[in-house]
């Protein structure tokens, strides 16, 4: 009887061990513990002009500037690698879903780009500080082609940013077709 009892205990322990080993461990750290390498290695110049009826506070502007820089770091990374996941903290659900339709295996693209300059004109700022619409004029982008040739392009981009979670996130965009 005693042997049966210990056998049962042993089987139960083995069952627990198998169960524990088969459980998938979450390898993703919470956002506040993660180091954003893509954003950390990014540098650009952002000038902000406020044209909105309600003006953001200096602290809100500083936050927007930092998040906008990080957003472009991830947009460039996405352009070069098709890696949507790395920048998910800077995309709204709508943006993420839309771009997820073209997700293929991640690979290094032939062309990379850097954003050199932004003149962010805030057009609307919600009173609760959760929505910002802006037109980014004179966005200067430097493309590097496979033969290391560099091409610089300047354009204007309309952008909708929503403050969700800890970040400003891109929700929609339009590259303005200028004559």
């Amino acid at each position: 009887m005693r042997i049966l009892f210990w056998l049962f205990i042993a089987l139960f322990i083995i069952y627990l061990a198998v169960l524990a080993s088969s459980m998938k461990k979450s390898v993703e750290k919470p956002i506040f513990l993660r180091i954003d390498e893509v954003a950390n290695h990014h540098e650009t110049t952002i000038d902000i002009c406020v044209n909105s009826v309600y003006a953001p506070t200096p602290a809100e502007l500083e936050n927007l500037k930092s998040d906008y820089s990080n957003l472009w770091a991830h947009l460039n990374h996405f352009y070069a690698t098709n890696d949507l996941i790395a920048g998910k903290e800077y995309y709204t659900e709508r943006w993420f879903k839309q771009h997820g339709r073209y997700q293929t295996e991640m690979k290094k693209n032939l062309v990379t780009r850097k954003d050199l300059f932004h003149e962010l004109n805030i057009e609307n700022w919600s009173r609760d500080g959760l929505l910002c619409t802006a037109i980014d004029r004179h966005v200067t982008i430097e493309y590097t082609l496979p033969d290391q040739q560099k091409v610089i392009d300047t354009m204007s981009v309309a952008i909708v940013l929503l403050y969700q979670g800890d970040h400003w996130r891109i929700d929609a965009m339009q590259v303005l077709q200028e004559s």
Binding site: V53, Q98, E123, T133, V160, M173, Q174
Partner: peptide, 25 residues
Amino acid sequence: QRIVFTIDEWSNIVSVNEENHLFFE
């Protein structure tokens, strides 16, 4: 405060009125 904008199903901002404005407040 009311802010209005229009987007298409691919997240492009579409003009919100005939004057080609992208945002309305």
